[in-house]
Amino acid sequence: METITGDLPKPPVPFTTGRAFTVRSHVTPPPTLVTRDCCRNFHHGREERARLPPVARSLKHPPLLGDLGSDIVEFEILDPIKVGDGHNAQVFNVRILNAQPNSEVFHGRKELVAKVYDPLYLDDDDGFLNPFLCVDKHYTHEVHAYRVLSNLQGNLIPRFYGSYSLDIRCEGTDYESETRTVRLILIERIPGVSMREVDPSKIPQPDRQQMIRSVIDFETEVYRRDIILTDLSPRNVMMVPPGCHPGGNLIFLDFGGAIFNRRLDEPVLAHLELFLGQYISPLIRWNEPRMLEFEDWVDWEWTPWVESEYAHTADTITPEMRAWYCP
């Protein structure tokens, strides 16, 4: 197979501290279908990547249309959270400067987090991934997940302040007279640090067990709503100081990889009996492989612990569920 290589230069990331942007509300299209290789970059895309400057590719492949709304929001970037080349999204803290006509939607909150789905700076795995398909998927799936989980907002997940569209001037490039469009969301700013930033050995085992119990309970509740979280990991779980958030000590982030209806959108899987809308006990879903993302936090015998913690859910398991989840 022919190998196509070469990374053409990109302009500097525009999301710098102190810069102000004006965005317009955007109604997202339905979540993109998730099939095998749905975000893969095939030969034509790799050839285009080697030939066209990154900005030219971004202009050629705008995001999915959706509908523009009437709300206009102006914000100033305060400081970066995850900004730079090679990220799935650009994430930074912002101060809301102005919001029209529905400023009450922010409930007096002036500092939020912006998450921008910019294909120009996405990590495309050296051309293996199609960045434009990736950001369309991440954006539409994250917005839809926040809507499906609306009654968890402000509690176990951040409060969602809407989806928006941003036009960025192609400054410092050969396309300065043009603008490229990216999508973004605004969400609640969560105090604290992620579980990935903490040394588990510094936390007593009973406290870690309670935290892992909270992770399992959250994932199980989301699964009951027919959503699979493909990126549930310590980096997406915020540890909040006691009393700083009504949701408690753990807040869950990042739903761009959410899969709906508990399966890929493959025709051969459409007939599967997946017990949609039903509670599925952790006794048959949280086995050893399921907890590997959090293995640094677990220094106890896993299976006996799960069986003890969730023994009260055993009577919810039907023979059909056991046959499917424990073949």
Rank of each mutant, 00 (worst) to 15 (best):
L65C: 14
L65M: 13
L65F: 11
G66Q: 05
L68S: 15
G69P: 08
G69N: 07
G69I: 04
S70D: 15
S70W: 07
D79R: 15
D79W: 13
P80Q: 05
I81A: 08
I81N: 01
V83A: 10
V83Q: 04
G84A: 08
H87G: 08
H87Y: 09
N88V: 06
Q90R: 04
V91Y: 07
V91M: 06
N93I: 03
N93D: 11
L97M: 07
A99L: 09
Q100Y: 11
Q100V: 15
P101G: 04
V105M: 13
V105L: 11
H107F: 08
G108R: 11
R109I: 00
L112W: 03
L112S: 12
V113D: 02
V113L: 03
V116F: 02
Y117H: 01
D118Q: 01
P119D: 06
P119Q: 00
L120C: 01
Y121R: 01
D123S: 13
D123H: 09
D123G: 06
D124F: 08
G127R: 04
G127H: 04
F128I: 14
F128W: 14
L129T: 06
N130D: 09
N130L: 05
F132I: 15
L133C: 11
V135H: 04
K137D: 03
K137Q: 00
T140R: 11
V143G: 04
H144L: 04
A145I: 00
A145S: 04
Y146R: 13
R147D: 05
V148L: 14
V148G: 01
L152F: 05
Q153A: 01
G154S: 00
R159W: 01
F160A: 06
Y161E: 09
G162M: 00
G162W: 01
Y164R: 06
L166T: 14
D167Q: 12
I168T: 00
E171H: 15
E171V: 15
G172I: 02
T173L: 11
D174I: 09
Y175P: 06
E176V: 03
E176F: 09
E176N: 03
T179Q: 08
R180Y: 11
T181S: 10
T181E: 10
T181V: 10
V182Q: 09
R183V: 02
R183N: 06
L184V: 07
I185Y: 07
L186M: 07
L186K: 07
L186V: 11
E188V: 01
I190Q: 04
G192A: 00
G192R: 02
V193L: 12
S194Y: 14
S194G: 05
M195F: 07
R196E: 08
R196P: 07
E197Q: 13
E197F: 09
P200Q: 08
S201M: 11
Q205D: 15
P206Q: 02
